[in-house]
Simulated assay, not measured.
Amino acid sequence: MTDLPADVEAAFRATVAWYRDLDEGSEPRRYFEYVDHEGLVDAGARWLFEAVIVDHETAAVKQIVLDSSGEVHRYWWRHLEDDAGGLTDQALDGAEPGLKPVTRSAFYALWKSGVDE
């Protein structure tokens, strides 16, 4: 990998393996979108998630961030993070104001839009 300490590298590899197992698993998928209408992080930005249920919590396995400038970032086990952000490690809360279900086709239309990983 890099010059990371062995314990840090091992933890990173375990995280990647956990997300990969979830992503490649057969669990039913759920799709969500959150739009930052109030400017809490980035006014007008959109976050889309593909998620599965893990231990009674909704865990994102793929995430798309469309920031207010129009730049798109995709995160999943092959690309957990970059300088702009990363795949959320927090459970999604269906009661969160602004988080709403979307269709699989809506999610994948943007995921497959030709944006680099």
Results as ranks from 00 to 15, higher is better:
residue 98 G to R: 00
residue 73 H to W: 11
residue 23 D to C: 07
residue 117 E to Y: 11
residue 77 W to V: 01
residue 115 V to R: 12
residue 99 L to T: 00
residue 86 G to L: 00
residue 21 D to M: 06
residue 80 L to H: 04
residue 66 L to Y: 01
residue 117 E to D: 14
residue 52 V to N: 02
residue 101 P to I: 01
residue 28 P to L: 00
residue 30 R to Q: 08
residue 24 E to M: 09
residue 26 S to D: 13
residue 10 A to N: 12
residue 29 R to K: 10
residue 72 V to P: 03
residue 39 G to Y: 06
residue 18 W to Q: 12
residue 62 K to R: 15
residue 60 A to L: 00
residue 59 A to S: 08
residue 74 R to A: 11
residue 84 A to D: 12
residue 101 P to L: 05
residue 29 R to L: 07
residue 92 L to W: 11
residue 61 V to I: 15
residue 19 Y to W: 15
residue 82 D to Y: 05
residue 114 G to K: 04
residue 94 G to L: 06
residue 79 H to W: 07
residue 91 A to V: 01
residue 15 T to S: 13
residue 45 A to Q: 10
residue 87 L to I: 11
residue 53 I to P: 09
residue 8 V to S: 05
residue 76 W to G: 05
residue 92 L to R: 10
residue 38 E to S: 10
residue 27 E to Q: 10
residue 30 R to M: 03
residue 112 K to C: 08
residue 56 H to F: 11
residue 40 L to S: 09
residue 115 V to F: 08
residue 7 D to W: 05
residue 22 L to W: 12
residue 108 Y to L: 03
residue 5 P to L: 11
residue 20 R to M: 05
residue 16 V to P: 02
residue 68 S to M: 08
residue 114 G to V: 02
residue 36 D to F: 11
residue 96 E to T: 12
residue 41 V to M: 10
residue 113 S to W: 05
residue 47 W to E: 09
residue 73 H to N: 14
residue 27 E to P: 06
residue 70 G to H: 02
residue 41 V to F: 15
residue 23 D to E: 15
residue 96 E to N: 06
residue 99 L to V: 02
residue 88 T to S: 13
residue 85 G to I: 05
residue 57 E to G: 02
residue 66 L to I: 15
residue 28 P to G: 04
residue 97 P to M: 11
residue 31 Y to L: 00
residue 60 A to P: 13
residue 43 A to C: 08
residue 102 V to C: 05
residue 72 V to Y: 04
residue 25 G to C: 03
residue 94 G to P: 03
residue 54 V to P: 09
residue 36 D to E: 07
residue 98 G to H: 02
residue 48 L to N: 00
residue 40 L to C: 02
residue 92 L to H: 10
residue 14 A to S: 11
residue 33 E to V: 09
residue 76 W to V: 03
